[in-house]
Simulated assay, not measured.
Amino acid sequence: MNYRKLGKTGFSVSEISLGTWQVGGKWGEPFRHDNADKILNAAADAGINFIDTADVYGDGESEKAVGRLVRSRSERIYVATKCGRKLQPHVADAYQPAVLRRFVEDSLRNMQLETLDLVQLHCPPTEVYYRPEIFELFDRMREEGKIQHLGVSIEKVEEGLKAIEFPNVTTVQLIFNMFRQRPPALLFKEAARRDVGLIVRVPLASGLLTGKFTAQTHFAAEDHRNFNRQGEAFDKGETFSGVDYATGLEAVEELKAAFPEQPQLAALALRWVLMFDEVSCVIPGASRPEQILSNLQAAELPALTQDQMQAVREIYDHRIKPLVHHVW
């Protein structure tokens, strides 16, 4: 396993880490603690030392499983959770310091930990990034020992650029993959200048970049890849990175043709993300332990050549850029 510095947190984290949105069951399935324990321990056994969760994943059950892992292992495992998405309705006015404080304290209870390594605002509405009192709250909680660091999970480049103006923001979590290539143009450079760590989520575009989906692939009714394609439940960009499904399938076929020697498109897609030095870690998910080992194959691949990087860029420019580049 290779490790990278997570910005000004100073944490040395596994470049391939783990996101836990679907740990304990696939999207749409009930949470299973036995499955979660197997996945989380497989990750730790493989050298993964950074786990990203959220209070809304499994309605707190994911946090409980992550806390159980941390308490049961001797290795240093860094935990990042998120707060804010519990708000109903999820609007800017609902973001209030007292409410966010309660969410963080709930996460501490869920995980049975004394302090949280990293708490991230969970994709709040854009207006929230312009309210200093929200960010000041986390300075108070750090002084109280409840958290060590503050980060943000964003939808738009604009939000990341605004967030890192606050000196206590140490990390930005964002969607970045072969189908979402806008961030390096400005956000990556500004994050590096301010020593802000970058955590990449949705690196496989909700599974599109595994190359295993077809027009006939069925997604369960409770799976966001079925019900959120037009943003019916939350930001459209979280599902297939905002790319039209049929268009995404066509682009995947072009990627396969451009890399005929690489049968594992998922590993290639993860390795592509890691080509960017500003990235601290990538957090693909897993719904079973075997997917952990599959994700780690990316670290074994050689660096992509300039010609290969250009081939990916040309497919993006031709197929994907007009759909997503200006939106997020």
Rank of each mutant, 00 (worst) to 15 (best):
N2H: 13
N2L: 14
R4C: 10
L6W: 07
K8Q: 12
F11H: 06
S12I: 09
S12G: 13
S14L: 03
I16V: 15
G24R: 11
G25H: 02
G25E: 04
K26C: 05
W27E: 09
G28E: 03
N35G: 07
N41C: 11
T53N: 04
A54W: 03
D59H: 13
S62M: 03
E63Q: 15
V66L: 01
G67D: 13
V70S: 05
E75T: 12
E75S: 11
R76G: 07
V79W: 03
A80S: 15
T81E: 02
C83W: 09
A92W: 08
A92Q: 08
V99H: 03
V104R: 03
L108V: 05
L113I: 04
L113N: 05
E114C: 08
L121D: 11
V128Y: 11
Y129L: 08
Y130T: 12
R131E: 08
F138Y: 15
R140W: 11
I147D: 06
Q148S: 15
E155P: 00
A163H: 05
F166L: 11
P167A: 15
P167N: 14
Q173P: 10
Q173N: 12
Q173F: 14
F176A: 07
N177Y: 05
F179V: 09
R180Q: 14
P183A: 11
A185G: 08
A192E: 15
R193W: 13
V196K: 10
A205R: 00
A220H: 12
A220P: 12
Q230R: 14
E232I: 05
K236V: 14
T239G: 11
S241F: 04
A246I: 11
T247K: 15
L249Q: 08
E250M: 13
E254D: 14
L255Y: 15
F259M: 02
P260F: 07
P260S: 08
E261L: 12
L265H: 01
A266L: 03
A269T: 04
R271W: 06
V273S: 09
V273T: 07
F276A: 12
F276Y: 14
E278G: 07
V279C: 01
V279S: 01
S280T: 05
C281T: 08
V282L: 04
I283S: 10
N295R: 00
L296R: 00
L296M: 06
A299C: 09
P302H: 04
L304W: 02
Q310G: 09
Q310F: 07
E314F: 05
D317P: 03
I320C: 00
P322M: 10
H326A: 14
W328G: 05
